[in-house]
């Protein structure tokens, strides 16, 4: 049976709270709680989690850096056992890596038709998964693809450059008005709630997936992301997923993000178009006479 208990990460509890006052309270409680319940909380976060986090001149957390998820959620965002690759020739390349998933409560509240559609998607994932075609990954999937991304933060914009497909995203910190049209990466409008960057993402084209398991949404997708420091080199990433065309209610995901701390780490290029041309255009190649 699926648990409805929110996910826990060493020392910080994922929260559905959106009220900034409660949010601030939550953080202010962390340090005393840690002192009292020291054994319960992992040592890495047993101090006030945000005290050591870099700050901007105006006091917001400075999210600049290269970040990466460390999760098997791209295989399936729900809890899942290991499984074989979609082609036997691949052996363990692209095999399904087992993982606890990132969905709070574990279940995705699909409408009945959509639950069937996800199974079809899974069966045909080798052909249909947009990741396999090097398409722009969409949100939230870009966050937990097994590729790093870099945040560049200014008062006006928070820019996210993703390694996968050279994707890039502009989070508007000043009201840009309504989106001029639908897109793969959506229309992102951000604001600070205490130490949390909250990003409202809408105007998706409905063509991206959540994972390789065929979990999907429509163009009515609405995502509210929350990026919260939980130590000098960790962020808590939370997102609320809404799509009345596909789901029966909003649902949440959460996962930690890890700062890439290697010396001179940089966002190297993964322009994958050339890697998928054979897959996409094989049938249009000139055949030998």
């Amino acid at each position: 049976m699926a648990s409805s208990r929110p996910r826990r990460y060493a020392g910080l509890q994922a929260s559905k709270e959106t009220d900034p006052m409660r949010n601030r309270l939550r953080h202010s409680l962390i340090a005393p709680m840690a002192l009292i319940a020291g054994g319960f909380l992992a040592p890495a976060f047993s101090q006030a989690p945000n005290a050591q986090f870099p700050r901007t001149a105006t006091g917001e957390p400075r999210l600049d850096g290269i970040w990466q998820a460390l999760t098997e959620a791209n295989s399936d965002i729900r809890p899942h056992a290991a499984g074989p690759a979609p082609l036997p020739e691949l052996g363990t390349f692209s095999a399904i890596r087992p993982g606890l998933g990132i969905v709070e409560g574990n279940d995705i509240p699909y409408q009945p038709w959509a639950a069937e559609k996800q199974k079809e998607n899974f069966a045909n994932r080798l052909e249909l998964d947009p990741e396999g075609k090097c398409f722009l990954p969409g949100v939230p999937r870009a966050t937990y693809l097994p590729y790093p991304f870099q945040i560049l933060q200014t008062p006006q914009f928070v820019m996210i450059a993703y390694q996968f497909a050279n994707a890039v995203r502009t989070i508007h910190m000043e009201d840009p008005g309504p989106s001029p049209g639908d897109s793969w990466m959506g229309w992102s409008v951000g604001r600070w709630e205490g130490d949390t960057l909250v990003v409202d993402v809408s105007a998706f084209n409905g063509q991206s997936w959540f994972d390789r398991a065929g979990n999907f949404h429509s163009d009515a997708l609405h995502v509210v992301e929350r990026y919260t420091p939980m130590g000098p080199n960790h962020l808590l990433y939370e997102a609320t997923i809404e799509d009345p065309n596909v789901f029966t209610r909003p649902w949440n995901i959460s996962l930690p993000l890890y700062r890439r701390v290697e010396e001179n780490v940089e966002l190297m290029e993964f322009k994958c178009v050339e890697f998928v041309e054979e897959k996409l255009y094989r049938h249009l190649r000139k055949q030998p006479e």
Binding site: P130, K133, C134, F135, L136, T170, P180, G181, S183, W184, M185, Q207, V273, Y281, L284, R285
Partner: peptide
């Protein structure tokens, strides 16, 4: 600058080949 998605619907390549 708005999103420039080119490869995702490269009907030009399909037409050319």
């Amino acid at each position: 600058i708005y999103e420039f998605a080119c490869h995702e619907a490269n009907r030009g390549m399909v037409g050319l080949l």
